[in-house]
Amino acid sequence: MTVIQLMNRPEWLWQYHRAIPSLLRAGGPVLDEILRQLQVHGWGEQDIFAVHLSLEEALVNAIKHGNRSDPHKTVTIRCSLSARKFLVEIADQGQGFDPNAIPDPTDPEHIESPTGRGLMLMRTFMTKVEFNAKGNAVRMEKEKSPSEERTDKPAET
């Protein structure tokens, strides 16, 4: 299923699309709005922390490593939020990279390397993380954790 097909599904309660210049401070308001919407739609603190950390890392990757902070290039953020799922795609205009070529940052040989930790955190905190073939767009999904489900729904019989 393509991102556009996914974004067009009817269950989304809130959708958002922005293109920002390659400046890290430009990502702040976008991030703030996404986190606010997660709160408004009843998502819990742990899930919001997970999305927050993953978005920060993905935005830094796109702006600094993807677009190399080139102010003529933009980063596009598209996201959709349902009662149980958050979906986001962050795309830059850089050359892309091969995520499978990034060394394991927990390997003692690479522990001092500055690369790989952000990607590892994204993969751990999100339910699913995928890159396009070029490696300049990441799609991340987060399913609401069962522990953060509201308990006021009717019991199943």
Partner: peptide, 16 residues
Amino acid sequence: QFLPSAVINVLVVMEK
């Protein structure tokens, strides 16, 4: 409240 990988990298270098 929040420790992004960029700050972790600084701490790793300083520890060494």
